[in-house]
Simulated scan of single mutants.
Amino acid sequence: MAAALAASLLLTACEAGGAGPEAAPSAHPVFDQPLERQVLAALRQTQEAGNASFTQTLTFESKNKGRAVQTVEGRIDFAKGLGEAKIAWKIPREFDDEVKNVILGRTPGRALGDTSGSYLIDRERIRYRAQSSPYWLVYGAADIAAFDGADPVEHLRGTESPVGGMLLEGISGAAATEQRAVGGGRSYKAELPEAVTQDMFPADLNDELSTPLGSTSVRRPGHPLTVSVDARGRITHSRVDLSRLLGENGVFAGMTSLTMDLTLSRHGASRPAMAAEGKVRLSAKTVRPVTEVEAGGCVDFNTGQRDSQTVVDVDCRDPHDGRVWAQKSLGEGPYPGSSAAKSAARTACREAYDSVPSRWTGESSERRRYWFMWSSEREWDEAGEGRVTCYVVTRKGAA
């Protein structure tokens, strides 16, 4: 009887101790991936957080002339495709004008684009506001056809993030080569492939950056990249050295380094505010090539497109950047060459200057100074004739 009781107690004890199968520990969505895939997995984990705040700096450094720094700050909602950002440049006066032109983009007359601005992005439109403008420009999906089928502000929209020009675009193609534990998270060393950098810059700026030439049969190393993630595998910081893109003979030959630095925070708690306060202008109705502005018409130069041929057509009763006072033909026939085309354009504007209303030319910010823009070889040949636009650059308060 005692033996039977002991056996019963032993069986009960075994059952109480959980003799059934145990659940295997769940796999970590990032750290349990193969090393070379962990950076991409961290990007996906970051996107799955829904949203985040960010600060990114892009730094061009010169040995003797200081550093030009672009700072972009904002919030992104991956799930809803929403983004808001403010952009600001600080550029030393000592930088060459050619470098400044490439960094900021060109505008008619006032050679440099604005050093700061704001934009709001959703899946249907991009709203852009230049520092010098009292209104937002709205580029809708239906407006793209007006610009030969190309998105005129595509550099403001990303693919891995609603906000374009971010390091997240490049991280998607990076493979980790080393890792180390940092607190509950990880820090990775990786390589950023050369090809993905094309998605990180506006097209005109990207054209001035250099991809080193070499044998296609030899794999070149990527750009040095570091990525830090938290315990949940979400990206908190990343930095890449893109100095090799500066080249040796181009516009940036005098620069010594180019780096991009991105910080992400408040994952899941940073919903963008999408209200565009103030006046709004629809790009389809107001943004146009300067050649299409009627004589006497007034314009603003910053469109968000980084395009020196495109302006905002505005009411002359409002403050404006410039005033077109003549649109002239340079004659039919084949393109005469760059020197002859420029000479013909200068002559046409000079001859027209005294015959137009003085109130148009009198708005110039510099007495009796005006600008002119003429057809390129392609434009001349396509139209069968050349044209010139004559205009003055005004004080912003002109009205």
Rank of each mutant, 00 (worst) to 15 (best):
A146L: 10
G18H: 00
V280Y: 07
M166F: 01
P221E: 03
N206E: 07
L262H: 03
I144K: 11
V314C: 10
M255P: 01
L264H: 00
I126E: 07
T57I: 08
V39F: 02
P272W: 13
E22D: 06
P336Q: 10
A7G: 09
L246Y: 05
S161P: 04
K328N: 09
K279E: 12
L40K: 08
S375G: 08
Q179N: 13
G214T: 10
S270P: 10
E48V: 03
S265T: 15
M274A: 08
W380A: 02
R281T: 01
V196Q: 06
P221G: 04
I87K: 10
E191D: 05
G109F: 04
A41L: 02
A276L: 05
G117M: 05
T236D: 03
Q131I: 07
G184D: 08
H237S: 12
G66K: 02
A345I: 03
F301M: 06
N302S: 09
L246D: 02
A23T: 06
R75W: 00
S133T: 14
P162K: 10
I235C: 01
E277T: 15
A52R: 04
R106Y: 03
C298R: 13
R110C: 00
Q131Y: 07
T55L: 13
P334L: 14
T177P: 00
V196L: 11
A383F: 11
A130D: 02
A85R: 04
Q198P: 01
M255V: 04
K396L: 10
L282T: 15
T291R: 12
D114E: 03
A142S: 11
P319W: 03
T310N: 07
